[in-house]
Amino acid sequence: MTAVLTTTAMPPAATAPTALRRALPLLAAPVAFFVAFFAVPMVVVLSSSLAAGGAPSLANYARVLLDQYHWDVLAVTFRIAALTTLAVTLLGYPLAYYLVRVVSSNALRRSCVILLLLPLFTSNIVRSFGWMILLGRNGLVNDTLVGIGLLERPVRFLGTEMGIVIGLVYILLPFIVLAVGNALATVDPTLEEASADLGASPFTTFWTVTFPLCLPGLIAGVIMVFTLAASAYVTPALLSGGKITVFPMLIFQQYSTVFDVHYGGALSITLLVFTLVLVALAGRIGNGGGDRS
């Protein structure tokens, strides 16, 4: 670890011992924080998942992986996460583009960003309860759709995957807008001007210059949104009305009401591993895109 620290933390001009002495106190706090609040709990979960009846065992994992039910729940969880990510991207990318490229007044852009971030200051629980009221049978959404004649009778949103996706999209939209907006802001406009000078249409310029250049930002946003959606508990728990089960709900049940930390631990590690695999795949796609540009 020390070797890694010296190579990464050493400024080229400083001598090695001085750099090390300067870097260590700076690193001590984050490392201690990381160990105490991430590594230790992770090890606790992992070790409890590898024990059954007081002895080391893989029985908990067998119980999770050899049961078709868990694969079905996993499929529902990732389907909801993927739909959320898709919807958030389709809504968030144009919004980020608009904020960075179209809005010319700084003050207006700043107020738009504040508006976008404002919901993050409220708890997920409160916001999900809000959606329960809006999406209910007699809620604002149904009343409006029936009122303007688009629907004959109220549609059921609560207790459907659609309802969960709506709630998650609302909560996760700011993440993708910020990630894409940042990437867009750093794209050098002269590159686009050069493309236009060479005769490319605005659309071609966007697809061959702007979009590939901000792809890393988009991928970062997509990974963030996907992992947050796959691990979300509060929103699915409230908006599913208990009729759809996602993996985090199974984990919560084991830890909070059944008190089986071994089975619960195995469920947690399973979700973590599958999410990491999917994120790694997305990262590869992101790198591939980066190479092309």
Binding site: R137, L158, A237, G241, G242, K243
Partner: peptide, 8 residues
């Protein structure tokens, strides 16, 4: 039982 929701 035709429910609106099961409450947590």
């Amino acid at each position: 039982l035709d429910t609106a929701l099961y409450f947590d």
